[in-house]
């Protein structure tokens, strides 16, 4: 029982990170119908940006308070990763609108390979680790000498996910930008005729996705304290799984899917085998796509001839 509750807590934390990445996938897929394959690598890049800023703030500027440093790192990482997201969309995806269907996906794979090797070239191939930023936690209950703890960093991660999901959900549902996004999602040509700047709306969607990936990257660094250039691929695929599982195009669905994937992964590692945890996640992707393509909260796709 204690082990189960502890794994539940860990799974929800991991799932929150997946959920944050998944929102970027789901928004981009919703609006232009492409899998932004490079999103996982944007996440990895943001973790590196956060890492460098964190070292810069603590050892060069000597900021003592971890809370302030973390907040500054988060804001800076969000801004700079957004710039990357914007640049990637501008260079690699925008010229391809109206090209054949697989062109954006192939371009995205190219960006993904480029980004991970770019980071390898400029930052080296070794794992980069930093001392833990936030220590300690709350002991929820103790039984048979096994204490179930909720670490402070886990609280930060879950709270950040909840707050950001609320903010972004509000943006998509209630603001003019969100309305423009949903209009482009339904019919891009019609939206353009009605005076919506389609290119700008799509750019902003990428920027929002990248900003959320930056939060996920910072949280990943906070949680594990280690990052390497190849860390984008597997979390990226798992987050995509989460987006599909939750129903592509739905923001709460993405976070819900992320939480489920996180739980499955941790519980699978705890009770079955840790070696096959990625196999479990990848199998969920295949099973969901084959048997339940519209996901939990998504709308069924209508085939237009």
């Amino acid at each position: 029982m204690e082990v189960f509750v502890q794994q539940l807590v860990n799974g929800l934390t991991l799932g929150s990170i997946y959920g944050l990445i998944a929102i970027g996938y789901t928004m981009v897929f919703g609006i232009i119908g492409m899998v932004n394959f490079a999103h996982g690598d944007i996440f990895m890049l943001s973790a590196f940006i956060a890492l460098i800023f964190f070292i810069f703030l603590t050892s060069w500027l000597g900021i003592g308070s971890i809370a302030i440093a973390l907040l500054i790192v988060l804001v800076l990482a969000m801004i700079l990763t957004s710039l990357w997201g914007w640049a990637v969309e501008r260079i690699a995806y925008r010229p391809l609108r109206g090209s054949f269907r697989l062109a954006p996906l192939i371009s995205a794979i190219g960006v993904s390979i480029f980004l991970s090797n770019f980071v390898q070239v400029v930052q080296g191939a070794r794992n980069k680790s930093i001392p833990p930023m936030v220590n300690g936690g709350i002991t929820l209950f103790e039984d048979n000498g096994y204490a179930v703890t909720l670490a402070y960093k886990q609280i930060i991660i879950m709270a950040a996910t909840a707050v950001l999901l609320t903010i972004f959900w509000y943006v998509v549902q209630k603001t003019p930008l969100g309305r423009a996004q949903r209009a482009c999602e339904q019919d891009r040509k019609m939206a353009a005729l009605l005076g919506i700047n389609v290119d700008r709306t799509i750019s902003l969607t990428f920027v929002m996705g990248a900003a959320l990936a930056a939060v996920a990257g910072t949280m990943y660094l906070l949680y594990y304290g280690v990052v390497s250039f190849s860390d984008g691929f597997v979390p990226g695929v798992k987050a995509f799984t989460a987006a599909v599982l939750g129903g592509i195009g739905s923001l709460p669905g993405a976070v819900l899917g992320g939480l489920i994937i996180g739980l499955v992964e941790t519980l699978w590692s705890a009770y079955f085998s840790i070696e096959y945890k990625d196999v479990a996640a990848f199998s969920i992707l295949a099973i969901v796509l084959i048997f339940m393509p519209s996901g939990i909260l998504g709308r069924p796709e209508v085939e237009k001839v």
């Binding site: 119908g33 996906l105 695929v237 070696e275 196999v279 990848f282 992707l285 295949a286 084959i290």
Partner: peptide
Amino acid sequence: PVLRLRGDYLAIVTLAFGEIIRLV
């Protein structure tokens, strides 16, 4: 199993299968 899928979805599922085989 992937016969019904198209385009991007097909690509991602084949990617997942490739990774599953490697992990096995």
